[in-house]
């Protein structure tokens, strides 16, 4: 113990507010930093997160290695077809799990620390998760793309790479928002894990990650054509196919043909909608 220090005197009333943007940035970066420190000290998530999709790519890609040529639209090999699916599915899984740390913060009372702090915007909690998951997905995606290139499945060009990044960002934002919403709405981590478990694989199978719509019966084709994962997979697949334009048709759905731009617009709309949906949950405190 020490003698009294003058520092304990109460702070005088704050004069003039700093800009909202500066404060939100400060909050968001501090919360993101915490997630990265946790990752650095518990790297198993990252290791598993990189290894798993690589195993998918190698094993699943080999599964149809001897399929007749010309089976897939455009005559591409199955490994090449699969790459886009694995990238999207990996990012999707990571984002779907984004709510878990928040749920544990709720359960251990750490979230209260954030909620009694005068955060300029509680959306900072969402932004921090999005930043973290997006960075993680990028690392995973680059690992997948590198491996795919080594396996001879190709590499998207400069513009293609940009398209991959934008698509992933939109998907990650949407799914992270959804997962955080669940983390606030569900009673505990058991329920959250159950929902993640139930949602994860069916969404994969009911998308164009593993097979094109033309392979599916009509009912599944409809499901796949409405699945948000499909809207992320097809632009990335187009980026892999070589030269492309945003206005090229990338998805022939039962209800019509969609261009890459339309797919991105749908993802952006979904991200914005889910974000607006969960915002009230963060602020419901005093209502």
């Amino acid at each position: 113990m020490t003698s009294a220090s003058p520092s304990l005197t109460p702070m005088p009333a704050a004069s003039g507010e700093p800009s909202a943007l500066a404060e939100i940035t400060q909050e968001t970066l501090a919360l993101t930093r915490r997630l990265f420190v946790q990752l650095a000290r518990r790297p198993s998530t990252l290791v598993a997160g990189v290894l798993q999709p690589l195993i998918w790519l190698v094993l699943f890609g080999a599964l149809f290695a001897n399929a007749p040529e010309g089976l897939l639209p455009g005559g591409i090999s199955y490994g090449r077809f699969l790459g886009a699916g694995v990238i999207v599915f990996t990012a999707f899984s990571a984002a779907l799990n984004a709510g878990l740390p928040v749920m544990f913060d709720r359960e251990f009372g750490f979230l209260n620390r954030l909620l009694v702090a005068p955060l300029r915007s509680r959306s900072s909690i969402v932004f921090a998760s999005v930043l973290y998951i997006t960075s993680l997905s990028l690392v995973q995606s680059l690992a997948i793309m590198g491996t795919a290139a080594l396996l001879g499945y190709g590499w998207p060009g400069g513009a293609g790479l940009l398209l991959v990044l934008v698509t992933l960002l939109l998907l990650v934002f949407a799914v992270t928002a959804l997962s955080l919403g669940l983390a606030f709405a569900l009673p505990g981590h058991i329920e959250l894990i159950a929902v993640i478990f139930v949602a994860n694989l069916p969404l994969l199978f009911a998308s164009t990650a593993l097979a094109p719509i033309s392979f599916m019966p009509p009912w599944l084709g409809w499901l796949a054509a409405l699945n948000p994962l499909t809207f992320a997979i097809e632009p990335i697949r187009a980026a892999y196919a070589g030269s492309f334009h945003l206005t090229d048709v990338v998805l022939v759905a039962p209800y019509g043909s969609l261009t890459a731009l339309t797919c991105l617009a749908i993802l952006a709309g979904l991200a914005a909608g889910l974000f607006l949906l969960i915002r009230p949950m963060l602020d419901r405190k005093l209502t």
Partner: peptide, 8 residues
């Protein structure tokens, strides 16, 4: 330090 950032 995290707490400090939350209080700007």
């Amino acid at each position: 330090h995290l707490q400090a950032a939350l209080h700007h």
